[in-house]
Write a protein that binds this DNA or RNA. Structure first.
Length: 272
DNA sequence: CTATGGACCTGAATGC
DNA sequence: TGCATTCAGGTCCATA
């Protein structure tokens, strides 16, 4: 479910409400990907000063001194409400605040909530170090993107997913952006021309920005922390369309596997 | 350093 | 209906 747009839409849906709330209690369900890293009681009494996002991580700033990193993994979603029912089978973290309860629901438990004492980002946690630039931020610009691709011999699809060059592009949006740019996913990153790198840069920005603007799209149910669904207007051009005709030229969409992940592309519209 | 494959976990869909 | 297999939006880590 969650790539950058879904995480950002989630953030926007509860950031203002939880801002300045005081933590009354925190509780855990089954183990997530990593341990919390502190006693739940030690969160009590602190204030959530704001919610930021870095890549696919949500960052809750705590006062005094601290940071809660939250990741939705593959199947995570967040709810925020004044009154929530008792935690269910797949609810694994509750943060009860004076403004409402923030709840992480994550059936597969690839997600995580991790406490860090550091307040400032980058080296704050090793999970955040080594992340590439924010695709919707001012540092993502075409020339630098092209330069970064020059240093990578791996297939462009894998480079996008790795997140070392640019963060937040997951499996669906990687396929979609490469389709928009007319680039074959197997093309080695360092072989991509300046012109095509610039097209890909524009495609990434466009596909992510449009998805955020539409409230987080994607194919299956996605809802923000208020339980509202995305608009689904950004229908996939290639993702999950193996064998179906390309919406641009009619050629059958192909599915291949790269790094044990499905890749979809149009063999006619996307050239190596 | 890069590249690869495995690991984590549950549920839905498909096939026999 | 039951049971086995495959696949799913992520990403860290060990190994070569």
């Amino acid at each position: 479910m969650p790539e950058l747009p879904e995480v950002e839409v989630t953030r926007l849906s509860f950031a203002d409400q939880i801002s300045k709330a005081r933590i009354k209690a925190a509780s855990l369900g089954k183990p997530l990907r990593w341990p919390l890293g502190c006693a739940t009681e030690s969160l009590t009494g602190r204030t959530v000063t704001g919610v930021r996002r870095r890549g696919k991580y949500l960052l809750l700033d705590l006062q005094p001194q601290g940071l809660l990193l939250m990741h939705l993994g593959m199947s995570g979603s967040v709810m925020f409400d004044r009154h929530l029912p008792p935690p269910g089978k797949h609810d694994h973290f509750d943060l009860v605040t004076t403004h409402g309860t923030l709840r992480l629901h994550d059936p597969r438990r690839f997600g995580a909530v991790v406490y860090s004492t550091r307040q400032d980002d980058e080296p704050a946690h090793k999970l955040l170090s080594g992340l590439g630039v924010e695709p919707l931020g001012p540092d993502f610009e075409p020339a630098a993107f092209h330069r970064a691709l020059k240093g990578k011999a791996a297939a462009i699809k894998q480079v996008l997913l790795a997140g070392q060059v640019v963060v937040g592009v997951g499996n669906i949006y990687a396929c979609e952006a490469l389709f928009m740019a007319g680039i074959r996913p197997t093309t080695r990153a360092h072989k991509i021309s300046r012109a095509r790198a610039h097209r890909l840069h524009a495609a990434i920005v466009e596909v992510l920005a449009r998805a955020v603007a539409q409230g987080g799209s994607t194919l299956r149910d996605f809802s923000n922390a208020m339980g509202q669904a995305g608009h689904f207007q950004l229908t996939a051009q290639v993702y999950d369309r193996a064998g179906l005709p390309c919406k641009q030229c009619g050629a059958p969409i192909r599915r291949i596997v790269q790094q044990q992940r499905s890749t979809y592309y149009c063999p006619a519209c996307q050239r190596p």
